[in-house]
Nucleic acid binder design. Structure first.
Length: 422
RNA sequence: GCGAGCGUAGCCAAGAGGCCUAAGGCGCCUGUCUGUGGCACAGGAGAUCACGGGUUCGAAUCCCGUCGCUCGCCCCA
């Protein structure tokens, strides 16, 4: 038997209401903030990600689905959504559009990782990007988009964490300071952190091992070590967020794994959550477009994982509307009735009325059982008697009341109440 | 890449060397009710007990290996 590849999942019909719910809320929010949708290819030139995400990152080092296509070009299944959007911005000369350009996307993303709760090799993200405006009010606005989405989804037990990681002006000095601080305490560091000291000093801050974590309390904080420009940007952002009354928390341990982030970074995390509980993460990336060969263009965005959102919707028992289901099931008994049933269901569906045609192979009883099991509100019954009189029996499955109606009257009535025009 | 746990029908699951031609429940199908659902009752279909090897007179059950799933670490949505 074949199985879905490790780390991938089928999203069965019964799951779809969560997806539809998230997508419709996300699209509402995006529209409200003036974002336009963009869809980019599932794979790109491998160098796009190597250049943007960063050569030393885990994503590039060990998580990319990279292969040579038949023409010999190295392509990579998109491991994140920002770089392709930036590529598209450049490719289509979007700097000629009114700035900033606001775009959102839904797409699958691929990373070769060990799957576990809330982590997959293929998952789906909704993300937004604002390109071409460096003002901190844009940061505040993007954070508002994220928060607006979370709250409109009905997620409550969540925290909004923000930080500033500086820019190429001030970060090297900060990282050096951090390294110096942790080096002094090297003896108590866990093994992972000892290697982080060289590899990725910022990550020392969010180590969960108690001894390391405690050290983080007194570690130098990046927001305290910004250059003048970054510092001013940070102060303005804070004041805007205050003005907007967004319930942010400054978390000086918040760092993000991709190289391209500058200045503002933020995440949304559930209050209760395990290792990979972050449901939304993003930040500013003012150097990315130049890295990709464009002229200097600031950018900021975030992404959320639909699987993790779904997990949280279920966990916090948010009630999600059911998928629309058909109003009628057409039951039929006998060969003539089957043809009449076929005709009736075609006419109803062409009028925009959701209708299931029973194949009639089961006997009336079985067909009604099916209507019941499928939660169809009305069963329509056609047999020899009805055909002779040009009628149809309409049974209300909830009240168990039923009546014969003229076929033509019924179709007109149903079209009016449940069809396109209703 | 490292560490841990678990694999018995579509799902949940009993079972701890012979009573297993594998219990029970959900779901599915059929009938009681030959043109009327939900409830009830009766019946039915559906399992090479993950796979391979070993121990034993005898293995779903013990041992080894493989594969798969889950959870954790790294890292991330």
């Amino acid at each position: 038997m074949f199985q879905a590849p490790r780390g991938t999942a089928d999203h069965l019909p019964e799951e779809q209401k969560y997806w539809r719910y998230i997508e419709s809320k996300a699209m509402d929010v995006a529209a409200r903030f003036g974002f336009g949708r963009i869809d980019t290819p599932a794979f790109e030139d491998s160098n796009l990600f190597i250049r943007s995400v960063g050569e030393g990152t885990d994503i590039v080092e060990k998580e990319m689905y990279t292969f040579d296509d038949r023409g010999g070009d190295s392509v990579t299944l998109r491991p994140e959504g920002t770089a392709p959007v930036c590529r598209a911005y450049l490719e289509h000369g979007m700097h000629n559009l009114p700035q900033p350009v606001r775009m959102y996307y839904f797409c699958p993303v691929f990373r070769y990782e060990r799957p576990q709760a809330g982590r997959f090799r293929q998952h789906h993200q909704f993300g937004v990007e604002v390109l071409g405006d460096a003002d901190p009010s844009v940061d505040a606005e993007v954070i508002e988009v994220a928060w607006d989405l979370m709250t409109s989804l009905g997620l409550n037990e969540i925290n909004l964490l923000i930080n500033s990681v500086g820019d190429p002006q001030c970060r090297p000095a900060y990282v050096a300071k951090l390294k110096e601080y942790y080096s002094r305490h090297q003896a108590v560091l866990c093994d992972d952190c000892k290697s982080r000291l060289d590899r990725n000093p910022l990550r020392l801050l969010d180590c969960k091992v108690e001894a390391c974590h405690a050290l983080g309390n007194d570690a130098p904080q990046s927001a305290e070590n910004l250059c003048e420009d970054c510092s001013e940007h940070w102060a303005k952002l804070i004041s805007y967020l205050d003005k907007m009354q967004l319930p942010y928390q400054i978390d000086h341990r918040l760092v993000r794994g991709l190289d391209y982030y500058t200045r503002t970074v933020f995440e949304v995390q559930p209050v209760e959550g395990g290792g990979q509980s972050t449901i939304c993460g993003g930040g500013r990336y003012d150097g990315l477009i130049t890295e990709l060969g464009g002229r200097e263009t600031p950018g900021i965005g975030f992404a959320t994982g639909l699987e993790r959102l779904t997990l949280n919707l279920k966990r916090s028992e948010v009630s999600v509307p059911d998928e629309p289901s058909p109003k009628f099931l057409v039951a039929n008994v006998g060969d003539d009735a089957r043809i009449a049933a076929l005709d009736l269901s075609v006419r109803l569906r062409r009028a925009g009325v959701g209708t299931i045609l029973s194949s009639g192979t089961r006997g009336l009883r079985g067909q009604m059982r099916q209507a019941n099991a499928l939660n169809i509100p009305f069963t329509l019954i056609l047999g020899d008697d009805e055909i002779e009189k040009g009628e149809v029996v309409v049974r209300n499955m909830e009240s168990s009341e039923q009546e014969s109606k003229s076929l033509e009257d019924f179709i007109a009535e149903a079209s009016k109440s449940y069809g396109n025009g209703s």
